[in-house]
Design a protein around this nucleic acid. Structure first.
Length: 406
RNA sequence: GGAGACGUAGUUCAGUCGGUUAGAACGCCGGCCUGUCACGCCGGAGGUCGCGAGUUCGAGUCUCGUCGUCUCCGCCA
C-alpha cells in the first residue's frame, strides 16, 4: 500500500464501504468521548471522519494529538448508520475506522484557530501565513485566482490571442503611477524600474505584427495600499489587438468577463452586453466614471429652474455658470429629521458646503428651502425629477465639476 | 501627504461616574464521558491593560507625548 494515502479526504463515498484505505492529512477537529474519538481529517480535497475505538493500541496517543497535527491513518471504510449520517459533509455517509495510526508532524498550540473563520490581526496572520492559508476562506481565494487565470488563458488562446512574457526589469517609462526602483549593480547610481504595465514591450510586439496579445501581468506600483489593493497580490489582464474598432475590443472583453463570472461565481449577470455610458454622461449623472448602476439614482440638472430663485446660494451659482443638481431618493420622505441631518453631515464630511433637501409628504413640498421657492419653480422641479409623493430630493450647488463630485 | 478609529489573556472582545481581587467566549493544561460532527460536564493555568510621563488619596478608565495597527481621503489604469 502507498506509504501516505490511497484516497484523499474528500473522495470516499458509500460505495467504498468495506474497502481498506489509507488517508493523510491535518487534524481539523477532534471530539473525544472518552470511549471513542472522532477526528475530522482534512486535506486539500475535503474532510473525512476517522473513528478511533478504545481497544486500538494507539488510543492514548490519539487522545493527546492536537489540532493541525499531520497524521496518517489506515482503516476500513464503514457506512454510517442512518441516524449518524452527516448530510452536511460530502463524505458524510461513511467514516473510516482506524486500524493503524502514525503521527507525522506535531503541531504546537495555535496562534489563531484554523478551523473557523475568526477575525484576527493581519500581522499575526502574516507571521503564520502557512496557517492562514490552511483556512477555508483563504484556501478558496487562492483556488479562485488559479481558476480565473487558467480560464483567462484558455479563453483568450482559443480566441486567437498569444501570451507573451516581457522583461520585469526595465528602464522607467513614466506614466501616472510611481515606479518601484531597483538599484543596478553593474551601473552604480542607476536604477531599474519594475514596469507598471509592460507598455514598451507589448507595443514592440504589436508593431512587429503579432496580431493579438495578452498577458496576466503583476501590477508593480509604488503607491499606498488599500483594503482591496495590496502590492504583490494585484494582477491585471493586459490585452492588445490589431486592426480593430473600439466596439471590437468591448465585445471581446464582454465575452471574457461574462464567461469568468458565469463559470466561477454564483453572481447573477444582468446584461451580457454591458450598458455603455459616455464619460461626460457618467460624470453628469453619477459624478463618477465608475457608477454603481444597481441603484438607478441619477443626478438631474436643475440649474435653469433656479436661475431666478430667491434662494441665493442656488440662483447665484446658476447665473455664474455653476450647476444645481438634484438627486431623487425614492420613498425617503418619511424618514425622520435626523436622517436628513445625517445626510447633510455626511455630505459636509465629504467636503460639500451643504446639502439642501425637500420631502414630498402629505401632498406638500416640505424642507428648509421650500419657502424660498415659487409655485412654478416647484412644478418645474417635479416635472424634471419625476418625483412623486413619498420621495425626497437632495440638492448640490456650486461650480459644475465640484457639484458633480458630491 | 491629510483625517479618523483602535491598542486589555494565545485569539475575539467586555470592563459603568476614576475606587477594593480586571471578566466572558474560544483555545491551552488536568479529570470524567462509547456516536459525536462547533460533542458535553467538572476543575485549573494564563494579564507589564502597547510604551513613557502627567493629574489624583487612587488610573485599564482622564490629559499629553510616543510607538504600532487598521480604515477613509489623496494617490493608483
Amino acid at each position: 500500500m502507498h506509504p501516505y494515502r490511497t484516497h484523499t479526504c474528500g473522495a470516499l463515498r458509500k460505495e467504498d464501504a468495506g474497502t481498506l484505505v489509507k488517508l493523510s492529512g491535518w487534524v481539523h477537529r477532534k471530539r473525544d468521548h472518552g470511549g471513542v474519538i472522532f477526528i475530522d481529517l482534512r486535506d486539500h480535497y475535503g474532510l473525512t471522519q476517522v473513528v478511533v475505538n478504545p481497544d486500538a493500541p494507539f488510543f492514548t496517543e490519539v487522545e493527546k494529538v492536537r489540532n493541525e497535527s499531520v497524521i496518517t491513518v489506515e482503516g476500513e471504510v464503514v457506512a454510517r448508520t442512518e441516524d449518524t449520517v452527516n448530510p452536511n459533509m460530502a463524505t458524510g455517509e461513511i467514516e473510516m475506522v482506524a486500524s493503524s495510526y502514525l503521527l507525522e508532524s506535531v503541531c504546537d498550540t495555535l496562534p489563531f484557530p484554523v478551523n473557523q473563520e475568526l477575525e484576527c490581526p493581519e500581522e499575526t496572520r502574516l507571521a503564520h501565513r502557512f496557517l492562514d492559508l490552511r483556512r477555508e476562506r483563504m484556501h478558496n481565494n487562492i483556488l479562485l485566482r488559479s481558476r480565473a487565470t487558467a480560464l483567462v488563458r484558455q479563453h483568450l488562446v482559443a480566441r486567437g490571442f498569444v501570451e507573451y512574457h516581457t522583461p520585469i526589469l526595465t528602464s522607467s517609462s513614466p506614466e501616472g503611477a510611481r515606479d518601484y526602483l531597483v538599484p543596478s549593480r553593474l551601473y552604480p547610481g542607476q536604477f531599474y524600474a519594475l514596469p507598471q504595465a509592460p507598455q514598451q514591450f507589448k507595443q514592440l510586439l504589436m508593431v512587429s505584427g503579432f496580431d493579438k496579445y495578452f498577458q496576466i501581468a503583476p501590477c508593480f506600483r509604488d503607491e499606498d495600499s488599500r483594503a482591496d489593493r495590496s502590492p504583490g497580490e494585484f494582477y491585471q489582464i493586459d490585452m492588445e489587438m490589431s486592426f480593430i474598432t473600439q466596439d471590437d475590443l468591448f465585445g471581446e472583453l464582454e465575452m471574457l468577463m461574462v464567461r469568468l463570472f458565469k463559470e466561477l461565481s454564483s453572481k447573477r449577470i444582468m446584461a451580457e452586453v454591458f450598458p455603455r455610458i459616455a464619460f461626460r454622461d457618467a460624470m453628469e449623472w453619477y459624478g463618477t466614471d465608475k457608477p454603481d448602476i444597481r441603484f438607478d439614482m441619477k443626478m438631474v440638472d436643475c440649474t435653469d429652474i433656479f436661475t431666478d430663485c430667491e434662494l441665493k446660494v442656488f440662483s447665484s451659482q446658476a447665473r455664474s455658470g455653476g450647476a444645481v443638481k438634484a438627486l431623487t431618493a425614492k420613498g425617503a420622505a418619511t424618514q425622520p429629521r435626523k436622517f436628513f441631518d445625517d445626510m447633510e453631515k455626511y455630505a459636509k464630511s465629504e467636503g460639500a458646503k451643504g446639502l439642501a433637501w425637500l420631502a414630498l409628504r402629505d401632498g406638500e413640498i416640505k424642507g428648509p428651502i421650500a419657502k424660498f421657492m415659487s409655485e412654478s419653480e416647484k412644478q418645474a422641479l417635479m416635472g424634471r425629477t419625476a418625483a412623486v409623493e413619498g420621495d425626497a430630493l437632495f440638492f448640490g450647488a456650486g461650480p459644475r465639476q465640484e457639484t458633480n463630485d458630491y
